[in-house]
């Protein structure tokens, strides 16, 4: 089974791009399933189910979504094998812009959109920098020049990635993404596989439910601004 990790900030069109890409794969009788990681709630599973795509949802709730991802991905992979999938796609939102839920040896796709402003590529960090493919959506609502400037800024942050312009509404460009998915290698399991980048560090009193502001209440991994 191939494992493909897809991530990107909220509302960039991850689900639309994935569904349109799966349409092409289904036509070739490739069986694809999706694990949707989210924080508080998601309705995206309904969209997948409507398309008869096997889907599982993981809601991290009070936990860091990245930590939640890495502590669940192996079981998700086993679910995919049991479902006899050809391709398993994990979809997760990069909520703190520090997330990078990519594994070495699995294709990593980052989905961002043209509306985020030209400084955003620098702010997103590891999620963009460590991706193999960067998909840029919503190109139809900005000018040609802005598309070019945005793509250039993406390239400054990640010069190695393949950049694809995809229209999530019409699906233009998803055929090529489907081709790239098919070129991805097979994996038997995720035993001892490694993350591409460390997770955001967190272990302090606030992680454990502390709500009061003040030095006396801060225990653990604390960092202060140098004012």
């Amino acid at each position: 089974m191939k494992l493909i990790t897809v991530s990107g900030p909220p509302s960039t069109g991850k689900t639309s791009v994935i569904i349109k890409t799966i349409d092409h794969l289904s036509q070739k009788e490739i069986k694809v399933g999706v694990i949707k990681f989210d924080c508080l709630s998601t309705n995206d599973d309904i969209l997948y189910k409507r398309k008869k795509i096997a889907v599982q949802v993981g809601i991290s709730g009070g936990l860091c979504p990245d930590h939640f991802f890495v502590s669940n991905i192996e079981e998700c992979f086993e679910w995919g094998l049991k479902e006899e999938l050809d391709i398993l796609i994990s979809e997760s939102a990069g909520l703190c812009n520090r997330c990078s839920p990519y594994l070495r040896g699995s294709l990593a796709v980052c989905i961002i959109d043209n509306l985020m402003g030209i400084h955003t590529p620098k702010k997103i960090g590891p999620m963009l920098r460590y991706a193999d493919i960067v998909v840029i959506t919503k190109g139809d609502i900005v000018s040609q020049a802005e598309r070019e400037i945005f793509a250039y800024r993406v390239k400054e942050v990640n010069s190695k990635a393949k950049i694809l312009f995809i229209n999530g509404i019409t699906g233009q460009g998803t055929l090529h993404l489907a081709d790239l998915f098919m070129k991805e290698g097979e994996r038997e399991n995720l035993k001892d596989s490694k993350l591409r980048f460390t997770m955001p560090a967190a272990l302090c009193s606030y992680c454990l439910g502390e709500m009061t502001v003040g030095k006396d209440y801060q225990i653990g991994n604390i960092k202060n601004i140098n004012l």
Binding site: L115, G117, I118, G139, D140, I141, V142, S143, E146, I149
Partner: peptide, 12 residues
């Protein structure tokens, strides 16, 4: 191909 799309909005 440089595409001059129908939409000409600027966000910058």
């Amino acid at each position: 191909v440089a595409q001059l799309s129908q939409n000409m909005n600027f966000v910058m």
